[in-house]
């Protein structure tokens, strides 16, 4: 036994058996290279989304209309930075550094949630992002709490708690607008009009067209398909919109008694691909902003390194 080395196929079999048995894969465990790559792609994209998402929301921090709203928004954006940090750390257990992931983002090799390529134009957008974007993220992330990679699953448990808080706060803020003045109601409706379809797009292409889906499902990186998740989101969100007295911008939206779900219209896939492929209003701005902050901070990071070196040398000298 001691000298016996399993070959690749045997290792993969053991690996798949563990996954089928709902065991978590941990950083030191053997895993297929494609599993690792697939996870790095998904987790880095997730972490980048948390971070890039700070921009459209941060856009309103300095203009938040009350002390309370400013505090809620500051706390939310702070949470998102925290989510970015946990997920980057979880991804680092796969043998990639945060620096490399950020570089891939700047080089356009790594993606972030395409919804953040839409601009946040009014105060109502902050509420809509919390309600819809965090709402959609939760639907996805709840299933990721059971994803097969241990560090990712555990990060999601922590993240989910905060996301549902964000979702409720966003909803509450829209509720105030929806029951406010005519201008505020219009602001809320306009935000829903602009964010509804991009929120549905967050779940990605139809299952049949989804490039990574089948393998991800087999490995239980993904636990539910894009279309299942999208349906769950629609089902949970429609009654919330009704309670707000707002109209979801989809004439085909209708309760289907037989299916026990809402039917809804087709996503404009041309727009979906147009934005993903770089033609959204904010694609360039988001990366330019991130890169600018990163570049402007280079001298700070160098200073920290130099300081740490000096401190280490001093300690050694003293010892």
């Amino acid at each position: 036994m001691a000298d016996y080395r399993m070959n690749e196929a045997e290792l993969e079999k053991v690996f798949q058996d563990r996954i089928d048995d709902e065991q978590k894969i941990e950083p030191k465990d053997w895993m297929p290279d494609t599993y690792r790559k697939n996870l790095i792609r998904q987790m880095s994209q997730h972490a980048h989304s948390e971070v890039i998402g700070m921009q459209p929301e941060g856009n309103w921090i300095t203009r938040a209309p009350s002390l309370r709203r400013k505090m809620i928004l500051l706390a939310k954006v702070q949470d998102e930075a925290g989510h970015g940090l946990y997920i980057y750390s979880a991804a680092e257990t796969l043998g990639i550094s945060r620096e490399e992931m950020v570089q891939a983002l700047h080089d356009g090799k790594a993606k972030y949630a395409s919804i953040f390529n839409y601009p946040s134009l009014t105060w109502a957008d902050v509420g809509a992002i919390g309600w819809l974007v965090d709402g959609a993220a939760i639907v996805n992330q709840i299933t990721l709490q059971r994803t097969s990679y241990g560090p990712y699953a555990r990060a999601m448990v922590r993240v989910c708690k905060e996301e549902s808080f964000h979702q409720r706060q966003g909803y509450e803020s829209l509720l105030v607008l929806a029951s406010g003045s005519k201008e505020q109601q219009q602001m809320a409706q306009d935000a829903l009009n602009r964010w509804w379809w991009p929120s549905l797009m967050m779940f990605g292409p139809h299952d049949a067209e989804s490039a990574h889906s089948a393998q991800s499902m087999k490995w239980k990186i993904k636990r539910k398909s894009n279309d299942e998740l999208r349906q769950a989101f629609v089902d949970q969100t429609v009654p919330q919109a009704q309670y707000l007295g707002l109209t979801i911008p989809d004439p085909k939206l209708k309760w289907n008694e037989e299916r026990g779900h809402y039917d809804f219209g087709e996503i404009d896939w041309d727009e979906f691909y147009r934005v993903i492929n770089g033609n959204g209003l904010c694609n360039r701005q988001r990366i330019v902003h991130h890169r600018r902050a990163h570049d402007n901070g280079a001298w700070v990071r160098e200073a920290v390194e130099a300081y740490d070196e000096k401190q280490k040398a001093r300690k050694q000298q003293a010892a």
């Binding site: 971070v51 700070m54 400013k70 902003h289 280079a298 990071r301």
Partner: peptide, 10 residues
């Protein structure tokens, strides 16, 4: 608060 998303480290 103007520093948000502009800092040298996450």
């Amino acid at each position: 608060s103007e520093w948000c998303s502009n800092a040298p480290y996450l």
